[in-house]
Amino acid sequence: MITLTLYTTLGCHLCSQLEAILRTLCAEDYRLERVEISEDDALVERYGVRIPVLVADDGAELDRGFEVERLVGWLEARGWLNDAEWRKLQRSLEGPEPGHARPAEMRNGRRYLG
Rank of each mutant, 00 (worst) to 15 (best):
M1F: 06
M1G: 14
I2K: 11
L4K: 12
T5M: 01
T5N: 03
L6C: 07
Y7A: 08
T8G: 05
T9V: 06
G11P: 11
G11N: 06
H13V: 09
L14F: 13
L14N: 10
Q17K: 14
Q17R: 15
A20N: 14
I21G: 03
I21N: 12
L22N: 09
R23S: 10
T24S: 15
L25S: 05
L25I: 07
Y30H: 06
L32W: 01
R34M: 10
R34Q: 14
V35P: 08
I37P: 14
E39T: 14
E39R: 15
D40C: 15
D41C: 07
A42I: 11
V44Y: 08
V44R: 13
V49G: 01
R50S: 12
R50Q: 09
P52I: 05
P52F: 04
P52V: 06
L54D: 08
A56G: 04
A56C: 03
D57S: 14
D57V: 10
G59P: 09
G59A: 09
A60I: 01
E61D: 01
E61V: 04
R64E: 14
G65E: 12
G65V: 13
G65F: 10
E67L: 12
E67G: 04
V68H: 10
E69D: 15
E69V: 06
R70S: 07
L71D: 12
V72N: 04
G73I: 03
W74G: 13
L75F: 09
L75Y: 11
E76P: 04
E76V: 05
A77S: 10
G79I: 03
N82T: 10
N82C: 12
N82W: 07
N82F: 09
A84F: 00
A84S: 03
E85G: 04
E85Y: 00
W86R: 04
R87L: 02
K88Q: 02
L89S: 01
L89A: 02
Q90V: 06
R91F: 03
R91C: 00
R91Q: 07
S92G: 02
S92Y: 04
L93G: 04
E94P: 01
P96D: 05
P98E: 06
R102S: 08
P103F: 00
E105P: 00
M106H: 06
N108E: 03
R110K: 11
R110H: 05
R110L: 09
G114F: 01
